[in-house]
Design a protein around this nucleic acid. Structure first.
Lengths: 209, 209
DNA sequence: TAATTTTGTCACTATCTGGTGACTTGTGTG
DNA sequence: CACACAAGTCACCAGATAGTGACAAAATTA
């Protein structure tokens, strides 16, 4: 019988680093950022914790690297604002808002990171915030600010309200599947009500005052 | 020279319990719910941790008792819905929404509990949620549902959006004093923009479709 | 295949954390 | 005052957690 070239798992730094990063995400999703301890990360990765120190310098640096590795707004950034907009960006804003609402609902890692950002100050998270702001700025500055003129700030405030509620309601729905203002966020019809209301509120702000 | 009747601090169970509860709140506000460890609570209270076990049964029961001791919606409940409403509750809803926005901004313990509720499942927190829902239900059921008729669900969805954003934006402002959609939530003018937008959106939903 | 480097494991220490039994100190009562 | 009980302290244990030095095993190179 042939002798395997190596008895144990193949040794590969890049792969091991990836396993460790994956373990971080798994724990983050299944537990929370407070559960991200060296021992547990190493155990989930199936590797020795020493490697976390060797490859990343420590848990903190590992977490930073994990956060940096996620670019949640790349799709938004690449999703170039279409040319020839004649409605002041209304349809585009509506579409993006609803897709953001769905995105948050479906990406558990993103949910946990939103929560993390509300709970802890961390340079990597602030950088994420900055990148998020930058991603939205293209749309706001080039399309909606000109369209709304001296009501630009008002429009931005409305968008802040709508986006933040899309975040909060999804975070809320994920812990206690319970209801908010009598709307059941765990049910399809409840979520549909929210979606319609989001659209309606965008309509409202685009309506001439 | 006179001999004091007692050398150490006076012994008083009720007072000690209060000191422990106060320590919980202090740590909750200054750090977060993840920092609520027996040793630290006892240290801040200036008492031995054994008392936490003697008086409350353990950290968990202590935290439950702390949460139950706060009744954040008592004001809302007692703030009876005024009689003789002719505008479908619009002015009242607007007033309550804005006061809620300010309340969250100013009560740090409440902020931390909102965050806690998004982060952990805990019976005491779910009870808080139930009490919150109940407090709002009086207004929704008696005033706005009848006024909106078959648009009642729509109105509730809008309110869910507005209230949740009032929560999120304040939580967001408390960690990184940074901006959201270009609105600086740490500045008075930024907050004023949000307040105006909240009012505007209530106006919108009350406008005949 | 021998030497060297890289990759990985293990055992160990130190510190933090929750929890408890034995004790001391104060308070009120006969 | 002597006693009993309540209030509070302390020392200690067990388990979790972070971090590291010494070593083993695989891969690479000569």
């Amino acid at each position: 019988m042939d002798r395997k070239k190596s008895a144990g798992a193949p040794r590969n730094k890049a792969l091991s680093k990836q396993k460790i990063m994956d373990a971080v995400e798994k724990i983050l999703i299944e537990k929370s950022f407070t559960a991200l301890k060296v021992n547990d990360i190493a155990a989930v990765a199936g590797l020795d914790k020493k490697l976390i120190y060797n490859y990343f310098g420590g848990t903190d640096q590992l977490l930073d690297e994990y956060i940096h590795s996620k670019d949640f707004w790349s799709n938004v950034k690449n999703d170039a604002v279409p040319a020839g907009i004649t409605d002041g960006g209304k349809a585009f804003v509506q579409e993006r808002l609803l897709s953001q609402f769905e995105y948050v609902a479906n990406d558990q890692a993103f949910q946990k990171i939103l929560l993390w950002r509300l709970s802890e100050q961390r340079e990597a998270l602030e950088k994420l915030t900055a990148s998020q702001e930058a991603a939205g700025e293209a749309l706001l500055e080039n399309i909606t600010d000109p369209h709304f003129g001296d009501r630009a700030e008002h429009f931005r405030a409305v968008m802040a309200i709508l986006i933040s509620s899309a975040y909060y309601l999804n975070l809320y729905a994920s812990v206690n599947g319970s209801t908010f203002c009598g709307i059941d966020l765990s049910k399809a019809e409840g979520r549909e009500s929210i979606r319609r209301a989001l659209s309606f509120l965008v309509d409202s702000v685009y309506q001439k005052p």
